[in-house]
């Protein structure tokens, strides 16, 4: 009964959405509003404006830096939210599930691949403002690497690696870097979130921001994984 009702609702909604979406300009044609208006300006501005030739990075870290600030705040908020709501040590109704040991093949492969993955992640983060990639993407790779490592070596090795206080600083590094950059913009250029003026300083700021986003993102991913793991197993 309930599911039939939901089905009717969803079908009606889908029909409405189909009507709306099919009226959108067809994708792929270069002379539509999407490409002619704001985006065209970003592309016409040239390499100097917005700090970098990679326009996606320019949009993220310069034109729409406030959005990206909000974004790293969302990750950070989610991370402390996870730490706040989890039930670590709380009551449980069933015994925890057993950990499945990792096979030696997987273990060896992870150990073998670690330096390469780490190198690739760093490359994505540092070169992200010129080439495709960037802090978020590199951070995800780095975070995935940490999760792999915790599977191979056991989560406790990873957990013990950093002091709790230091860990909180690492997790907070992305929003804090943005605050610093925003203040630097206010001091040097006169606008919150503006990138500083000479080209080399701007590039320096971009790389620092990307590094902060990358490491902060990796720390957040690892934090999500470790707290889930802890909640499930003890």
């Amino acid at each position: 009964m309930r599911s039939a009702l939901a089905l009717v609702l969803v079908v009606v909604l889908a029909a409405l959405m189909m009507a709306g979406v099919s009226q959108l300009p067809p994708p792929g044609e270069a002379d539509q509003a999407v490409h002619r208006h704001v985006a065209a300006n970003y592309l016409a501005d040239g390499v100097e404006e917005g700090g970098t030739g990679n326009r996606v990075t320019a949009v993220l870290l310069d034109y729409r830096a406030l959005d990206t600030y909000g974004e790293v705040v969302v990750i950070f908020a989610a991370l402390i939210a996870v730490l706040l709501v989890r039930s670590a040590g709380g009551p449980r109704t069933q015994p925890p599930p057993r950990r499945v040991p990792v096979s030696p093949v997987v273990d060896q492969v992870i150990r073998l691949m670690t330096p390469f993955i780490a190198l690739f992640a760093l490359f994505m983060i540092i070169e992200g403002h010129v080439l495709p990639g960037g802090g978020f993407q590199g951070g995800v790779v780095l975070g995935a690497l940490m999760i792999l490592l915790s599977l191979a070596l056991g989560p406790d090795r990873l957990r013990g690696a950093l002091h709790t206080g230091a860990l909180f600083w690492l997790r907070a590094v992305a929003p804090l870097a943005f605050t610093v950059s925003a203040l630097a913009g206010l001091g040097l250029v006169g606008w919150w979130f503006a990138l500083p003026e000479p080209g080399w300083m701007r590039e320096f700021a971009l790389v620092l921001l990307e590094l902060a986003i990358g490491f902060g993102g990796a720390a957040a991913l690892t934090g999500f994984f470790l707290s889930l793991e802890e909640d499930i197993h003890r």
Partner: peptide, 19 residues
């Protein structure tokens, strides 16, 4: 891809949507 100064030809995909 919207990478300027890399010898890529217009038209570029919109950078806004990617962000």
């Amino acid at each position: 891809p919207p990478l300027l100064g890399r010898g890529l030809e217009a038209p570029y995909a919109s950078p806004v949507t990617h962000a």
